[in-house]
Design a protein around this nucleic acid. Structure first.
Length: 431
RNA sequence: GGAGGGGUUCCCGAGUGGCCAAAGGGAUCAGACUGUAAAUCUGACGCGAAAGCUUCGGUGGUUCGAAUCCACCUCCCUCCA
């Protein structure tokens, strides 16, 4: 069944590099194996860049293997230099510890802890690194590493070559720590496969080498490709920054919209990366979309699937509710409770007291987070791109929020669905 | 410790005394076109409704006037020890 897994992964183009390629299929077929993937706490939430490896763990689990999600309480204190172009700031132990907790919770959504023999587990490398003493570490672990080899690694090369940046010993040692994780997990859990992003290749092979040297054990590594976009821009970024998995940082609605806006040139590839739909079905969808003219259906499928995966049925329903009311243009159909529901569903909204209305619309919309500066609002007003409950405003209206948000212009006397441009919506409730 | 090079608006990167809120590119935002795409074209892009205000690592000087000159400090890079 595992050769089938590998075949499926390849069909999805999810396999970038493999260490131990010749033996891996047979090894996987030989029984339920333990594998791991590490997630360093560099923020209080994971983002969609982490999604592919996360889903990868799940794919392996579905194929009968046991996934370990390693949260890097120790490595997060050091900072991974791999392909970073500059040294990173160190976070305090307290902060990292709090992030570890959050990320442990997030990771847990994707793998099954109650699957009998191949139940997943979350581990924290701080558990075995914290007690390590320096001399023992240098003698027992450091001795296995050749600096000559380490500086040959592609992942640190640009930092060594590049003018204007350097590489501290702290970050340089990261690879050793992560390698030690692998060796440790191998000893503790018989874990013999590590997966990760392609930027982790150097760390993974380092771990394989160390595992062999310390324990004489054979282990494997597999990386997933870097997710690229056809237009060359970085995947996972929006105007407002990264797309997070934490609903408090990126609402299910915004999350859904992110996927909905996937370019045609990327969407079928992304369906293979980010969903559990069969490859054949995705190909079929692509064919169907190509035959039809107009908007393809793939984005809708992608947004639906991934939102459900990350935010559950409820999150998906909320995202769909908001999207439908905002983009189908049928505002008049919204009932009073619908408005309340939209607020609850995560449509950006704010409550303003009538007597506390700002003097200008630029101020008001900027404060609401619809624009970064008054200039942008001004620009939009000048182009009839600001609408309140469907009516376009002009620059002349800027000084008179009181009239714009007058009671008789509101829905049910208090709701003002405001849009700036086509995609930015904000619901003002005036009291 | 020594020698040299450098820190400019989100990023890259011009700018060596006034014409500089600071070239150019990228990113971003808005408009047209569309499918809530892509490509393309247009406009905006330090803050402010405006008057005006605040920027060029930091502090203090020189000067009518400084991102540009001087002093000190700080951070980074390269080479030497």
């Amino acid at each position: 069944m595992s050769s089938a897994l590998l075949a499926d992964l390849r069909a999805r183009e999810l396999v970038f590099q493999v260490a131990g390629e010749d033996e891996l299929p047979a090894w996987l077929d030989g029984g339920s194996r333990t594998l791991y993937c590490g997630f360093d706490p560099t923020a209080d939430s994971l983002h969609i860049g982490h999604l592919v490896p996360l889903l990868m763990l799940r794919r392996f689990q579905q194929a009968g293997h046991r996934p370990l999600a390693l949260v890097g309480g120790a490595t997060g204190l050091i900072g991974d230099p791999s392909f970073k172009d500059q040294e990173r700031k160190l976070n305090t132990p307290e902060v990292v510890a709090s992030w570890v907790d959050k990320i442990r919770g997030q990771v847990s959504r994707f793998i099954d802890f109650d699957a009998g023999a191949n139940s997943a587990e979350v581990v924290n490398n701080l558990d075995w690194v914290a007690g390590l003493d320096v001399l023992a570490f240098l003698r027992d672990v450091g001795k296995h590493f050749s600096v000559n080899a380490m500086i040959q690694k592609e992942s640190v090369k640009q930092r060594l070559d590049r003018e204007g940046s350097g590489l501290s010993f702290t970050e340089f040692s990261y690879m050793i720590l992560q390698s030690y994780d692998y060796a440790e997990l191998n000893a503790r859990y018989d874990c013999s496969l590590q997966i990760g992003g392609s930027d982790q290749w150097g760390n993974i092979t380092g771990g394989i080498d160390l595992t062999r040297r310390m324990h004489g054990a054979k282990s494997f590594g597999l990386t997933v490709p870097l997710i690229t976009k056809s237009d060359g821009t970085k995947f996972g970024k929006t105007e407002s920054g990264a797309v997070w998995l934490d609903p408090a940082r990126t609402s299910p609605y915004a999350f859904y919209q992110f996927w909905l806006n996937t370019a045609d040139a990327d969407v079928y590839r992304f369906l293979k990366y980010f969903t559990f739909l069969e490859v054949a079905d995705i190909d079929e969808l692509e064919r169907a979309d190509a035959e039809r003219s107009g908007r393809p259906e793939a984005q809708l499928v992608l947004a639906t699937e991934v939102t459900r995966l990350v935010h559950g049925e409820e999150g998906l329903a909320a995202a769909q509710r908001i999207s439908a009311s905002l983009f189908s243009g049928d505002l008049a159909a919204l009932s009073e409770t619908d408005f309340a529901q939209l607020k609850q569903d995560g449509l950006p909204s704010s409550t303003v007291e009538r007597k506390a209305l700002p003097a200008t619309l630029t101020q008001m919309l900027t404060e609401a987070g619809m624009a970064n500066s008054g200039k942008q609002v001004k620009d939009a007003l000048g182009r009839n791109a600001v609408l309140v409950n469907g009516d376009a405003l002009s620059w002349e209206d800027n000084g008179s929020p009181v009239e714009v948000f007058a009671e008789d212009r509101g829905r049910y006397g208090r709701y003002y669905l405001t849009q700036l441009g086509k995609k930015k919506h904000h619901l003002f409730e005036l009291l």
